[in-house]
Design a binder for these strands. Sequence first.
DNA 1: GGCCAGGACACCA
DNA 2: TGGTGTCATGGC
Length: 229
Amino acid sequence: MEKLLLEIFDRLFRRYGPRRWWPAETPFEVCVGAILTQNTSWGNVEKAIANLKRAKLLSPEALRDTRVEQLAEVIRPAGFFNVKAKRLKGFIDWFFARYDGSLERLFAGEWPILREELLAVPGIGPETCDAILLYAGGKPSFVVDAYTRRLFAGLGLVREDIGYEELRALFMENLPPDPPLFNEYHALIVEHGKEHCRKRPRCPGCSLHVLCRAGHRHDPVPSPVLRPV
DNA sequence: GGCCAGGACACCA
DNA sequence: TGGTGTCATGGC
């Protein structure tokens, strides 16, 4: 399996090249972006991040001292702005209570323990948690998302209804704990997924073998990069 | 005008 | 434990 995973990585890398993720200027911006991008296109998140910068709110202290109502207005373009404002504030409050608002302290200890702590913070689910660990902290925690599930189910390597932790374990147990590799791999999977969806707008995500919203069963369309195994 | 995006959580049976 | 509803903007 390790050889297969690395082969898939190589094909994606040859097709798309280095993605240079995460698209953020600082680790803290990664944390904020990871929450803002929950079920949201990155373009909308960029608008919200720009608003935060313009309002000089993109720092732990500034977010801590901002009312949730004001924060919600600033991040409005990201969608779900009320819940996300609440989640951001909740994360920040925890960040100060537990780590004194210091990223250095946050990432200083054992990351598997930090992972459990983060997962216990309301609004921080597994994907957001792993994105923070990998892209803000440089920890070897693989990030899995909807694109990953579609791609690997389409390749016939996992079930379509595989859970987050089980899918993540496939990578954690079959790849070396290499943060740069994990970084690039997830970014490449997203790039591959985005390109794919754009090509079949009438049935998003269906380049591979899944049911679309209309309930139609579509024939698998070969990925331009990968073939089902 | 419909569909969905780099999820997470509450609620219900 | 699994299925469904909710949250919401903006691009295509």
